[in-house]
């Protein structure tokens, strides 16, 4: 009866499986396309930007975009208060914003995961101490904590990133700990423990890969909130130093011109909004694709 056996269904590779379920979410797909374009634009900014981001065209201060009454097509999105091309600044700013998001997520993800795993594996004094510390950090409004940290370290790009990373730490710790705790009771962990796997191996080789899904989703969302937080700090005058075209800082200076030159305010704001929206859409898509358990409807 060998003839009647069904052919073993060809399981798609995990990556392909992921892509298939990610693709279902149209919003997430569009967001992904935007994000890829943004990354490309950021990488290629020096070549595709029409002007240097800090070049001041002093004959064209606050010149409006050509499609809104301006006269020069050389400044597609208009110029700012010292005649810098806004489009070029946004493109170069994309590098900064992506860099801020990426580094600050890494800087809070890695220590966050380590601390979370440690807290899960040693629930005694060490674990309690870690979680208490996180409670303390969670008890302060994040932006206020970030402001205080930037005030301590001094304003600047690196310190902004650091402040955002510190503020974001507790959520990774909690998440890593919670997922690790569930995994710890699973049979496969007990099995490999009995098989004599060392503590480190158990942590990072056995348990961690199974906790990755929620962490990746959290990282995507962390990416977007990092961009928002950086913009908020920039807006409060605590962000990147001039003449860096960081989006939040651009918005903060543009505020002076909200009534006289709307485009200076609108463009960076839209850039932030669209990018954060794209990241959140991707986060949703990732969550649905990576972890059917987490799928909320």
């Amino acid at each position: 009866m060998a003839d009647n056996t069904l052919p073993t269904p060809a399981y798609p590779s995990p990556l392909k499986e992921f892509w298939l379920s990610f693709k279902v979410n149209k919003g997430a797909t569009v967001a992904l396309v935007y994000f890829v374009l943004l990354v490309l634009a950021a990488l290629l900014a020096p070549w595709i930007a029409p002007h240097a981001p800090a070049e001041q065209y002093r004959d064209a201060l606050l010149s409006p975009p050509p499609w809104a009454g301006g006269n020069a097509w050389r400044f597609v999105l208009g110029t700012d208060e010292v005649g810098r091309d806004i489009l070029s600044r946004l493109l170069h700013g994309a590098r900064l914003s992506l860099m801020i998001g990426f580094t600050s997520v890494l800087l809070s993800l890695i220590p966050g995961v380590v601390l979370g795993l440690v807290a899960a594996f040693y629930p005694g004094k060490i674990g309690t101490a870690i979680m208490r510390l996180m409670d303390i950090m969670m008890a302060l409004p994040s932006l206020l904590l970030a402001i205080a940290i930037v005030a301590v370290l001094g304003p600047g790009l690196g310190n902004t990133v650091l402040a955002i990373a510190i503020v974001g730490l507790p959520s990774y710790v909690r998440l890593a700990r919670a997922s690790a705790m569930t995994e710890l009771n699973r049979d496969y962990v007990i099995a490999s423990r009995l098989a004599g796997a060392g503590q480190l191996r158990l942590m990072f080789d056995t348990v961690l890969p199974n906790c990755m899904a929620p962490l990746i989703v959290q990282a995507t969302l962390g990416f977007s909130s990092a961009i928002l937080d950086a913009a908020a700090l920039g807006f409060l005058g605590l962000g990147a130093p001039p003449p860096m075209p960081e989006w939040g800082t651009m918005l903060a200076t543009a505020r002076d011109y909200i009534q006289s030159a709307w485009w200076v305010v609108t463009m960076p704001g839209l850039a932030i909004l669209i990018t954060v929206l794209a990241l959140n859409l991707m986060g949703d898509g990732l969550r649905d694709a990576l972890d059917p358990k987490l799928k909320k409807g």
């Binding site: 800090a54 001041q56 208060e81 010292v82 005030a151 001094g154 304003p155 130093p241 001039p242 003449p243 200076t253």
Partner: peptide
């Protein structure tokens, strides 16, 4: 803004100014 503009002016004579700020 003033510092940014002077930075650009000085760059023209080969002087590289680094903008610094403190609280």
């Amino acid at each position: 803004l003033m510092a940014e503009m002077i930075q650009a002016d000085w760059a023209k004579i080969g002087v590289k100014a680094k903008i610094v700020t403190y609280e």
